[in-house]
């Protein structure tokens, strides 16, 4: 558990910066809603007239941006992207930094198996991802609560955050697997970020084109489409798929890291 504590401390500063980022993004993003609210219907019409590609890029599909939760749904795409960036970079860095900074020689010479080392790092990374998610959840409920009177959107937000957590888990473990099982630990963070961005671009392409929906399984961003989640919650299939990808990534991580020569 000393390793867990060490990892939490080492990443504390970066986590605090991310938390500040979340708060800024929520405050600034939803702040714009004040202006939007008054001209809600007009805005909806304007948006509907925009080309489909533009709508897709801005994340406006079937969402009613005249309501706080609908508007939040548009913002959610960017929040989700933040979460994915955080998770994929954290996952790759927490493993690869030991080899990058040449501290692997220090750590792996201690009486500690590689499996245990990974477990401690995984737990530390999971804790941080959870903190990220909880801050996002609390912040979202508070900021939306300040715009809605009466009816609560907490249920929808909870669903969205559960979806975000699934996406975080995928990118975290895939990042860890890239760093742990790959041959180039120094480039792991870049590779991990590249994988994440590619899936993001793919999800954009799917929305813009409108007829390659079957490609959706390849991008976690598609699993938690805000409009669908607000409407019906997360699809059970997508939830299972997310957990499946996470599990495979973990197997690759543990098997690969155990077998590999350290640099």
């Amino acid at each position: 558990m000393n390793l867990y504590r060490r990892e939490m401390r080492a990443h504390l500063k970066s986590l605090l910066i991310w938390i500040a980022g979340i708060i800024a993004m929520l405050a600034a993003g939803m702040g714009k809603f004040t202006g939007m609210e008054e001209s809600g219907a007009a805005m909806n019409e304007l948006m509907a007239d925009m080309p489909k590609a533009l709508q897709a890029i801005m994340g406006i599909g079937e969402l009613d941006i005249g309501t706080p939760i609908g508007y939040y749904g548009v913002l959610f795409l960017y929040l989700l992207l933040m979460a994915a960036i955080h998770a994929s970079m954290l996952g790759a860095a927490i493993i690869s930094k030991e080899e990058r900074d040449k501290t692997a020689e220090f750590l792996l010479v201690k009486p500690l198996s590689r499996g245990r080392l990974l477990l401690c790092k995984l737990l530390a990374a999971l804790t941080q991802v959870l903190i990220f998610n909880l801050v996002m959840l609390t912040g979202s409920i508070l900021v939306i609560g300040s715009y809605t009177e009466g009816e609560s959107s907490a249920g929808a937000i909870l669903s969205l955050m559960a979806g975000m957590l699934l996406v975080q888990l995928i990118f975290l473990t895939v990042g860890m697997a890239i760093a742990g099982a790959g041959r180039h630990p120094k480039r792991a963070v870049a590779y991990s970020a590249a994988v994440m961005l590619l899936t993001f671009l793919l999800s954009m392409a799917i929305k813009i084109s409108g007829h390659i929906d079957y490609m959706g399984v390849f991008t976690p961003f598609y699993y938690v489409d805000a409009a669908a989640v607000i409407d019906q919650g997360i699809g059970a299939g997508y939830a299972l798929l997310s957990l499946g990808i996470t599990a495979v990534a973990l197997v690759v991580l543990f098997a690969g890291y155990n077998r590999r020569d350290m640099r």
Partner: peptide, 30 residues
């Protein structure tokens, strides 16, 4: 490894730690 002490040829440690913290961290594994 519980009974091995190793001194690498090039010493690299976690830079943002104090000497004392690093040594205590190292000791905490035994």
């Amino acid at each position: 490894k519980r009974h091995i002490g190793y001194l690498p040829s090039e010493v690299f440690y976690y830079d943002n730690m104090r000497v004392k913290d690093l040594l205590q961290y190292s000791a905490s594994f035994y």
